[in-house]
Amino acid sequence: MSRIYKFLDDRLNLSPLLKEIADHQVPDHANPLKTPTALIYCFGGICLFILLLQILTGVFLMLYYVPSPDNAYAGVNYIQNELAFGGLVRGIHRVGASAAVVMVFLHMMRVVLTGSYKNPRELNWIVGIVLLLTVMGFCFTGYLLPWDQKAYWATTVGVNMVESIPLVGNFLAAALRGGSEVGMLTLVRFYVVHVMFLPALLVIFLAAHFFMVRRQGISRPL
């Protein structure tokens, strides 16, 4: 392992990069070994960990999921009840989704409590809000995919909420559904948004988020 690393390092000079990514000083106020309450500074990292888990399990779930009204429920049922480790992989993805929302919220609370959103970090706060909305988008679109009663009605209700927006509501709801009723087109577009559009958004905004954290450093508490 270390020989492979040395081979690559000799040729590509990776060490400075690695130092930049993972081998730099953590300020004392954010180091749980020095300040136990600094555990709240770990929430962002936990969010990342959960998101990575979600991506990993999500990619594997795609092996067996077919986004059509004929197949969606049967496929999820097959994953859950017939495949080896299916219940586990789907379980991680399902519980992970809830955990992601909880952790993102706690992370946001930490940022509020320590005043980290203030100048000069306003931009990173905004990026964070986009990430929060992205995670919510994942939850909303993912919820429809099992195509059971709960999924169907949750989406019906969710889209009807959009419909109540003045002026553009009807149009937005129809665009979300791909028509006037939740149906096949809704399922396919929610699926594609869930596995392509949102992940792209997530990766771009996470990169911006981390770049800014590294550039600006971890904020001091109030």
Binding site: L56, L63, L83, A84, F85, L88, V89
Partner: peptide
Amino acid sequence: GLGIPLVGFFIAPAL
């Protein structure tokens, strides 16, 4: 812990 279930999940139909 992740690798074993995920690989198993992938190859399950072959078995």
